[in-house]
């Protein structure tokens, strides 16, 4: 049985199609698990899909580069999906305009807290400078995080992984924690998801409310601008 599977897999494993299919199937599986868990945030479909694919890559000794050659077609859609966030933003522009002072203050406070506390905790627990600087830009959307990390001497691949892991954490704890803090406002939920968890956390709240999607889009965009200004400063103040 194992030999037959291997004989079928080996030639196919070289082409992009199987890993494309595996990525989608793993995500569908993750969604099924979340439905079975009655929508429990801990059963996050992104987390489940990443774990399943990682196990399969290890089991088949497939290098990440070969996996990505197939999965890049999914990755490409992140671009149009980011542009598409303009739609909820435009539809809810009235709400956005009315809460601009709140957005500005919350963004400044949340963005600085997130970047500085990450660097401080890593340094305090004995992590290296490169790891700490990889942590600083992790709350912003993955492409900005990548280029910032490179610019300040972090590890770009680690930053990308941290950006997604942070997004998953924000998606898992976000709604429960904010409700516990008596924040019962979709604008605050959306903005917090966008600022602290970028696209991954936005993906969790956006389908629930158009208003949350609009503020998440706003949070992702503005946090990208602010973090792009703050992170190089942190690196300057901490000579390597």
């Amino acid at each position: 049985m194992g030999h037959v599977l291997l004989a079928v897999w080996q030639p196919l494993g070289m082409t992009p199609l199987p890993w494309l299919a595996v990525s989608i199937a793993a995500y569908v599986f993750g969604q099924m698990v979340q439905r079975l868990c009655k929508g429990a945030p801990l059963a996050n479909p992104v987390l489940i899909a990443i774990l399943v694919v990682c196990v399969l890559l290890e089991a088949t000794h497939t290098p990440y580069a070969r996996y990505f050659a197939g999965a890049q077609f999914i990755n490409f859609l992140l671009g149009p999906a980011t542009v598409a966030l303009a739609v909820p933003l435009a539809l809810n522009l009235n709400h956005v305009r009315r809460s601009l002072p709140g957005v500005g203050l919350a963004l400044l406070a949340g963005s600085l807290t997130s970047a500085l506390s990450g660097v401080a905790v890593v340094a305090w627990l004995g992590g290296g400078r490169a790891v700490a600087l990889s942590m600083a830009p992790k709350a912003v959307t993955t492409p900005i995080a990548l280029s910032l990390s490179q610019e300040v001497g972090g590890l770009p691949a680690l930053t990308a992984a941290l950006a997604i892991a942070g997004g998953i954490i924000a998606a898992i704890v976000g709604q429960t924690m904010l409700r516990w803090l008596r924040v019962d406002d979709w604008r605050a939920h959306g903005l917090a998801a966008g600022v602290a968890g970028s696209g991954v956390a936005a993906a969790q709240v956006a389908p629930l409310s158009g208003l949350a999607a609009a503020f998440a889009a706003l949070g992702i965009g503005l946090n990208g601008l602010l973090t792009a200004a703050v992170v190089p400063l942190v690196a300057l103040l901490w000579p390597g």
Binding site: A106, G118, A170, M177, A192
Partner: peptide
């Protein structure tokens, strides 16, 4: 350990601060 702790602390704090400030200011 530093990676996991930094990730958890900064994400949770970032969420809480953004959400609370936004909620109360607006």
């Amino acid at each position: 350990l530093p990676i996991l702790a930094g990730l958890l602390v900064s994400t949770v704090l970032g969420l809480a601060v953004t959400g609370l400030v936004m909620h109360h200011v607006s």
